[in-house]
């Protein structure tokens, strides 16, 4: 349950991870190893970004930027965690930046329009999942809308846990928090989702 620490045992443990081995080969000058890393992780990164931002238009840009950061920071890489944990942390930071800029843009827009509406903390519904109707049925859309309404940390925690099979320790490392906090985030997310999607799972 404790987040991995950068000791030699941990390093040896994570060296068993196939992606870590590829990353270490890439650090040693094997360029093909990076191509393989992209091949192995790209669809997961795209899925994570899509689910977190609910916006297909920014998926490609963020996924590309995340891998470029891997390229640029390869010389600083140390196998102190699974490669995907390191990669998802980069992706999460990029997504949080996008959300921050969306909020700023929305605040400026509302302020300049002189609106009394001040729902600054609500998710940007105009950006939510415009393609959802195209990729799935009504139920898929309802699930994505319910997840989009969760606070950012809860949303990312539930996506990492449910769709990326990340343990509490890994989620804690990606979100830069503790496993206890992750446990609480996930529980609160599930309570909210249970209320929002009640009709869906009770019929199943």
């Amino acid at each position: 349950m404790v987040a991995p620490t950068p000791n030699s045992d941990a390093v040896e443990k994570y060296k068993q991870d196939e992606d870590v081995q590829l990353m270490l080969r890439f650090c040693d000058g094997d360029r093909a190893a990076f191509d393989k890393l992209v091949e192995r992780n790209l669809s997961n990164v795209c899925g994570l970004v899509y689910r977190f931002l609910g916006n297909q238009s920014q998926v490609d840009d963020i996924a590309q930027e995340a891998f470029l950061r891997v390229l640029k920071n390869a010389h600083r890489y140390k196998p102190e965690a699974k490669f995907s944990t390191w990669l998802y942390r980069i992706v999460a930071n990029l997504c949080f930046n996008v959300i921050r800029s969306r909020k700023t843009a929305k605040q400026i827009s509302i302020h300049s329009a002189g609106s009394e509406d001040s729902k600054f903390d609500l998710p940007d519904e105009t950006q939510q999942n415009p393609d959802a109707g195209l990729v799935g049925d009504e139920r898929s859309k309802r699930v994505s809308e319910a997840v989009a309404k969760l606070p950012e940390n809860q949303r990312l925690a539930i996506i990492l846990n449910k769709y990326e099979d990340k343990s509490y320790a890994e989620i804690a490392e990606i979100l830069d928090t503790t496993t206890m906090a992750v446990k609480s985030l996930l529980s609160r997310a599930r309570v909210t989702l249970r209320e929002q999607l009640e009709g869906y799972f009770k019929n199943d």
Binding site: D60, L134, V143, I158, K162, Y200
Partner: peptide, 16 residues
């Protein structure tokens, strides 16, 4: 458990 099943319904588009 039902919630987990409901979350399984969320589909995503393929990467470019």
């Amino acid at each position: 458990q039902g919630l987990e099943k409901a979350l399984d319904l969320w589909e995503i588009p393929a990467a470019s």
